[in-house]
Write a protein that binds this DNA or RNA. Structure first.
Lengths: 142, 142
DNA sequence: AACGCACATGCAAACTATTTGCATTTGCGT
DNA sequence: ACGCAAATGCAAATAGTTTGCATGTGCGTT
């Protein structure tokens, strides 16, 4: 997505277009998996041109989350929260317990189940998070 | 479960039987839902007889988790981790986003799906956590 | 194109959950 | 009952995240 497109997206959601927000949004939209605030911070703090504060990263992630651009993923890596672009297509991941690699899985196994559950319990279901842990093929070989 | 039974359980897992561990295990086994370390602490710190330190609570939960007696639930309440007895029958919960009430749901919608996923991706699946958020019937009325 | 204001960022400090070091206490096998 | 290894209490350290405040920047208006 071009920076012009991102700018429009921000505008449509009432988000002021700043350099830091552009950088983070662009990065997240290319990164196809949940990532921690600190990892994002590390990526940008290395280059003079993109340097930004960790609290800025947190604030931007918070803004994006409130505006629906980003989701706080259910996956926590060593006590740290992770975030990902809010794919409009609902998505889950598998995490490798050895190397912390994360990969998205296709489809949602809860499709259909939610409405059943809502009807049988009276709960009005809003969302769900599913986290699957295992050992990836690479780590199994070792 | 009687305190004698709990003692035996501890012994079988190589866990020394202390008063604090008895209290926490007994409490968790009666509490049918995930709870934070601090909530546990609050329960006991009120009575002289059962008073214990917060760090002890954390340490005990950690021990229990390592020995498989307790599970760290995927549910976080306001940034705090929650724990629950490791029901051998695999279990999930729904959380009310209004009142934070947690209630267990029957059965696991991922039965069967896991093996399919493992086969199709090469991941060796170890476990999963599912968190369902919604609004409970009580809060819907308000 | 410059101006001004509301909002965003940087920085440091505050907060909160959780962990850890160490002195003391307790459980349990002998 | 004794003694040692392990558990607990307490206080301080960590680590992730949030916040207050001074400064900087984007954007609508002139």
């Amino acid at each position: 997505m071009s920076s012009e497109k991102i700018k429009e997206l921000f505008k449509s959601r009432g988000i002021k277009n700043t350099q830091q927000r552009q950088l983070i949004y662009d990065f997240l939209s290319k990164k196809n998996q949940p990532i921690t605030a600190e990892e994002i911070y590390m990526v940008f703090s290395k280059k003079e041109k993109t340097r930004m504060n960790l609290s800025t990263v947190y604030r931007i992630l918070d803004t994006f989350t409130k505006k629906g651009l980003v989701q706080k993923s259910g996956i926590n890596i060593e006590g740290k929260s992770t975030y990902e672009i809010n794919h409009m297509d609902h998505r889950h991941h598998m995490v490798c317990v050895k190397c912390n690699k994360i990969l998205p899985i296709k489809g949602c196994p809860l499709d259909g189940y939610e409405s059943y559950l809502g009807e049988s319990t009276g709960f009005k279901i809003i969302e769900h998070h599913l986290e699957i842990k295992g050992i990836c093929p690479d780590c199994q070989r070792k």
